[in-house]
Simulated scan of single mutants.
Amino acid sequence: MGRYVRADGLDIWTEQVGTGPDVLLVGGLGDTVESWHFQLDGLADRYRLTAFDNRGAGRTAMPEDPVSIETMADDAAALLRALDIPSAHVAGFSGGSIISQELALRHPRLVRSLVLQSTWPVPDAYLRRWGLFIRWLAETAPAERTFLEGFYLDIYTPRAHNDGTVDRFIEDVLAFPHKQTTENLNRFLDAVLDHDTTNRLPDIDVPTLVLAGGRDSTSRPELGRAVADAIPGARFAVMEEEAHQPFQEIPDEWNARVDAFWRATQTRTT
């Protein structure tokens, strides 16, 4: 069961499960702890996993203060400190991967390793235009279902659309009682599109695994490759048949990849 954790003046909705080395899971645009369902279930026998709702998503309120990636990275750091976690393996996807990059840059002692799924150093013209399209879609879609059906075209593979997986995800989202407002979605989106870590990525000095989906039309493999090339010693892998969120579509394979990476990381640091 989740609970609120008071962290630097913000009540952050948090779920923590399992035992073992600490892992912090950082979600993307509008995503809540539920987006990590397959990891919270599938890895809890080996790790103590902490997932949370970013400010303005799910059950965590959006303060009136300006929203930035730096602020959300500080939220994550404050959460770890409030939970007395001295350092954690950090995994983030999409916008959450950008928060994770910034967490490692601003609070390096809290980060033991990084897994960056569907990431980039700075939005290129294509990704920026896609983000602006999503903003328009959220503002003009006639219904929540219509928005999700359009948004998920770029998030999940045709396989997942055709086999009913996406339909099940949509039903879960529609039933979720803690809706993100369009205003808060746009504030998060604006923060992500304005952020650039290109020149600072070489300062990240923890083991890093960058994963990309070969069929991801948004954060395309070349963007992930640019991140991996900039971080000293980072590993890069393309999951050729996957899209933006393979940790949900093929969770067993994704969990096995990151588990192997975390185990190797612990072997090197113990």
Score class of each variant (00 low, 15 high):
136 W>Q: 12
83 L>D: 03
124 D>L: 03
244 H>A: 05
112 R>N: 06
190 D>W: 05
140 T>F: 12
195 H>R: 10
79 L>M: 07
105 L>A: 06
268 R>Q: 15
31 D>W: 05
47 Y>N: 07
253 E>Y: 14
73 A>F: 05
8 D>W: 12
76 A>C: 11
80 L>N: 05
6 R>E: 13
43 L>H: 11
235 R>P: 00
127 L>V: 13
142 P>K: 12
2 G>S: 13
139 E>P: 00
169 F>W: 15
246 P>W: 07
149 E>M: 04
175 A>L: 03
86 P>V: 02
232 P>N: 05
99 I>Q: 06
228 A>S: 09
208 T>R: 13
13 W>T: 03
263 R>Y: 02
103 L>H: 04
27 G>W: 00
42 G>K: 11
145 R>N: 00
92 G>A: 01
184 N>F: 04
6 R>K: 14
181 T>V: 03
155 I>A: 14
73 A>P: 04
17 V>W: 12
210 V>W: 11
12 I>A: 09
174 L>Y: 02
70 E>K: 10
243 A>E: 01
33 V>C: 13
128 R>G: 01
213 G>F: 03
187 R>M: 04
194 D>R: 14
40 L>R: 12
38 F>D: 11
247 F>W: 11
240 E>F: 10
105 L>S: 06
79 L>D: 03
188 F>W: 13
99 I>H: 07
52 F>M: 11
243 A>Q: 02
201 L>Y: 10
194 D>G: 13
60 T>N: 07
38 F>Q: 09
13 W>F: 15
45 D>R: 15
103 L>A: 02
161 H>Q: 07
235 R>Q: 15
50 T>K: 13
110 L>C: 11
157 T>F: 08
220 R>W: 01
245 Q>F: 14
65 D>A: 15
112 R>V: 00
84 D>S: 14
101 Q>L: 03
211 L>C: 08
29 L>I: 05
238 V>E: 03
23 V>N: 10
244 H>Q: 09
